[in-house]
């Protein structure tokens, strides 16, 4: 089994164009999807995030303490939420990711966590 981070990538500007009804439907579909992967034993953890403008970056590298307003990367698209799942292999993780993407209406990036042996790739 491998654990994967499923990141939901949202274009937050586009979200303004989505009607309340559609938002409600996305929430409901995401809730159903969460129930499904809990029942199937793939669920590890999940969460939805507030708007990227609510983010703050703090940098403590080499003893510094620099606080900056806003997300780390200035981008059009930002992380909207995520799941941590456990799957047999990438094929299963991609299938779960596809269903999650369909439910929440955003593209999903599927990325493996490092195993106990440490990183396999640079």
């Amino acid at each position: 089994m491998t654990q994967y981070l499923l990141s939901v990538i949202h274009d937050w500007n586009d979200l303004g164009d989505v009607s309340d009804e559609e938002v409600q439907e996305m929430f409901a579909a995401t809730g159903r999807f969460n129930d499904e992967i809990q029942a199937s034993g793939h669920w590890v953890f999940a969460g939805g995030l507030e708007h990227p403008s609510t983010a703050t970056v703090v940098n403590g590298v080499k003893g510094a303490n620099i606080v900056t307003d806003g997300p780390y990367l200035e981008a059009k698209e930002h992380l909207g939420g995520f799941w941590v799942i456990e799957a047999a292999d990438l094929d299963e993780a991609l299938e779960i990711g596809r269903r999650g993407s369909m439910a929440c209406g955003g593209a999903v990036e599927v990325r493996p966590f490092q195993g106990e042996d440490g990183p396999a790739g640079a």
């Binding site: 491998t2 292999d89 990438l90 094929d91 990325r111 790739g121």
Partner: peptide, 21 residues
């Protein structure tokens, strides 16, 4: 090399895809 690392890290299965795929 990178492709092989990805196969290993992401656990791309060494199997023939299931019938549906």
């Amino acid at each position: 090399t990178r492709s092989k690392q990805k196969i290993k890290a992401a656990n791309i299965p060494y199997q023939v895809p299931r019938e549906a795929d």
